[in-house]
Amino acid sequence: MVKYSEARLDRIFSALSDRTRRGMLSRLSGKALSVSELAAPLKMSLPAAMKHLAVLSDAGLVKRHKTGRIVSCALDAAPMQQANEWLERYQRFWSASFDRLAAHLENELWPPPPPSNRASPSSAASPRHRRKSTPRGRKPST
């Protein structure tokens, strides 16, 4: 079993829990952006956007690089892999549980038919009665 750092996972999931931060990560998935470019479409002040970036940086999801006065941000998706591995463990648990439930319900609702030499058990219980055919053509009027 893989040992996860609980504090690190807490920071990752906390960072991913906010819609604004997920939006920032989505915008960074294509290319690095400056802080002002990243904050421009947001309906908040630049200091508020920088607080969101600080949370993402603390979780290790964003790397910052300063060139002169411009601070560029880039996505670092490696911590998301750790979170994904943690989630996959529970996904396997739920898949196995649902598979067992489906198998149980199939056996409960549709038990396998008992072994038989006949083609169909209902054919022996209800013999076929042949209907008499009517003569062709018009029926005589009475």
Results as ranks from 00 to 15, higher is better:
A54R: 11
A54P: 00
V55G: 04
L56H: 06
L56K: 02
L56S: 06
L56Q: 09
S57G: 11
S57R: 15
D58P: 00
A59D: 13
G60W: 10
L61E: 05
L61Q: 11
V62M: 02
V62D: 02
K63D: 14
K63V: 14
R64E: 11
R64Y: 02
R64A: 11
H65V: 05
H65T: 05
K66W: 01
G68P: 01
G68R: 03
R69E: 15
R69K: 08
I70V: 15
I70W: 03
V71P: 00
V71D: 03
V71Y: 00
S72W: 12
S72A: 12
S72L: 15
C73V: 04
C73M: 09
A74S: 15
L75W: 08
D76G: 02
A77K: 11
A78R: 14
P79A: 08
M80C: 12
M80T: 01
M80K: 06
Q81T: 09
A83G: 15
A83N: 04
A83D: 09
E85F: 01
L87G: 01
E88S: 13
R89I: 10
Y90V: 04
Y90F: 15
F93S: 06
W94D: 07
W94F: 11
S95V: 05
A96L: 11
A96C: 04
S97Y: 04
F98N: 11
R100E: 14
L101E: 08
L101F: 10
A102W: 05
A102G: 01
A102L: 08
A102E: 12
A103C: 04
A103F: 04
H104K: 12
H104S: 08
E106T: 12
E106D: 07
E106C: 05
L109N: 07
L109D: 01
L109R: 08
